[in-house]
Design a protein around this nucleic acid. Structure first.
Lengths: 357, 357
DNA sequence: TTGAAAGCGCTAACAC
DNA sequence: GTGTTAGCGCTTTCAA
């Protein structure tokens, strides 16, 4: 887009001149109706309409007032992905529920993880930032912090001196795994989502785990392994398949796991999207869920209860997470607050007692 | 949020002074690396980091360059609703897919349909607007147009001199209804979504239709009725239930329709969300779909193929709609282009031959 | 009630 | 390669 406004821009001054009054008065007509007579105000507004003046230039106004009326949202993933991820969407919905009544706009900032794109952060016209699920190595977070604006990080409790809202991923994952183990499952498989932003898809080994950059995902894995270890099983024996967080990723990962001998009877998926893909894989292989195979997801997205069988999963308050992040930003400026939201195991139809064999 | 940056703001000038050089040079260090020696640039950048200067103030910069690097997205509905609507989300995803590579941010503007909130539009710091599915009476559109910035309207082909991208809602709806009629359905029911922004839920009469303010939804209704009339049925006899566009709306609307005598054998829903609610209603009443009841949706959201039975629906290119709107804005400034995207009937498992009775 | 003046922080010509 | 100058369009004291 040619970013220049094609039309010669109309300014306060022109209206003032046309009416033989000062800029101040025109400015007041728009911003402080009580500072001038009604008739004059009406005259000014009429003139403005006539000339095609849409009100004070927002940029110039902002330069003076230092208020953007918007908060920036930075995602650790590409935008098209974020907009296809029910988890991110629910989060945005929570932010929106707080911003709308506060009349604050949302600036969704693209980065695509490319260095050249980082200046979108430097140039964002906002009053604060919400940083969502970024890797702990990335420069995006650094750039955001460099702006010295109020900032809230989500799923990043590891940042110092930054407000954050998160869940206890490790504990939640532990509970998911413990559930399967309590149902007598011994042969488990894990489906992980991208733990490092490099597009890798395949089996996860110790090396891969060491280089994980999404702290909350690493925590989930550790939680699974905590429970497995506690059950007297060597975690290193449990296969892990990593995929992009999409249904087809869950599908292929589940196929890979289920084609092993002996076949796993329980699958732990790090997201509901992956779990739903795994459900499809079971369907394809003619396995009944939960009779032959139990599947546990993570997140509790709306779809988890809309599909059949309904998905057993870890519920985290997705919408609330966004709402709280937004409230921290709008209401608690200056303070550094870290909140851990509760999670809960939602037992539904996709998990059950392990088969006898 | 206290919108004032708490920290005393650091400016170009301070760095210039500290180094005994001019502002221009410092500015160049950030914006035109080729305009000064490497050593000097490094020195400036180092000093900036030392003082805690995060780069040129975006607002001031914008005031000069007249480029916001962002486009505004205005929804005809409340933001939390938009972020819960798969149709709106897919649309946003399309926009994002174009904006991300172009490094353009997305400013999501809240309005909540309240007059006092309209100034969020006047104050939006953007290079252009995408107006999505707004009612034809609303002032939001007027405010957007008053900004005199490049604008693309979606689902609003009725606006003059404004680029737009839409579908032929009337024809698409006609095809949906004709499908049921061809399957020998005579007793039909229609589930409409909010055709006017007033929260009404209930039976739709002629008066209500007359006062509809969402042109594309009115067109869908007319399309249904075209096909019904053509089949020799008086459209006025076909019951219409209007609900908010949510699954539970479709649920209660379907119950209302199915409790009539004689019971309809075919339901036309104006959205997939409503259709999915209707599916649940059939389930509740013990009706088999499609043996006892056929249901046709509209939109073809991802969920339509993830539930069982898969939903027969009108497919419209949701993501592409957003992508095209964004491209119009970014690439075709100055021109007024109107594009009508193709739709298609996707026949799946929720529709079939009408029962004999 | 209204107006004059100052300046928000920056960039773009142009001159050196 | 670097500095000088002149605003971008607005709001805000403060004075009239």
């Amino acid at each position: 887009m040619e970013r220049n406004n094609a039309l010669k821009s109309v300014t306060l001054l022109e209206i003032a001149k046309a009416l033989g009054i000062s800029r101040t008065t025109v400015s007041n007509a728009f911003n402080r109706p009580d500072q001038l007579s009604c008739e004059l105000r009406d005259k000014i507004l009429a003139k403005a309409k006539e000339i095609g003046y849409a009100g004070p230039n927002p940029t110039a106004r902002m330069l003076r007032t230092k208020q953007a009326g918007a908060i920036g949202v930075v995602f650790g993933e590409s935008l098209p992905y974020a907009f296809s991820d029910p988890v991110a969407i629910a989060f945005l919905q929570g932010i929106a529920s707080v911003c709308e009544p506060a009349k604050v706009s949302l600036l969704i900032i693209p980065m695509a993880m490319s260095k050249t794109a980082l200046n979108t952060i430097q140039q964002a016209v906002v009053d604060g930032f919400i940083v969502y699920s970024t890797p702990n190595t990335d420069e995006a977070t650094a750039h955001v912090l460099a702006r010295n604006l109020p900032t809230v990080a989500v799923d990043r409790p590891d940042l110092h001196n930054v407000s954050s809202v998160s869940i206890n991923d490790r504990q939640a994952a532990y509970i998911a795994a413990a559930h399967l183990i309590n149902c007598n499952h011994k042969r488990l498989g894990i489906i992980a989502m991208e733990m490092r932003f490099d597009g890798y898809e395949g089996t996860v080994n110790a090396q891969r785990i060491k280089t994980a950059t999404f702290p909350h995902l690493l925590a989930r894995l550790q939680g699974y392994q905590d429970a497995i270890r506690e059950a007297g099983i060597n975690p290193d024996v449990i296969p892990i398949e990593e995929r992009l967080n999409r249904e087809d990723g869950g599908f292929t990962a589940a196929l890979a796991l289920l084609n092993r001998t002996p076949r796993p009877t329980g699958i732990l998926a790090m997201s509901d999207r992956l779990a739903i893909g795994a459900l499809r894989a079971a369907e394809t292989l003619g396995l009944d869920v939960p009779t032959d195979l139990s599947i546990v997801g993570f997140d509790d997205i709306p779809l988890a209860t809309q599909i059949r069988p309904r998905l057993t999963t870890i519920r985290q308050p997705l919408v609330e997470k966004g709402a709280i992040a937004a409230r921290f930003l709008l209401e608690n400026v200056g303070q550094t607050i870290c909140q851990i939201l509760p999670t809960e195991l939602a037992i539904r139809e996709s998990s059950g007692i392990a088969p006898k064999t």
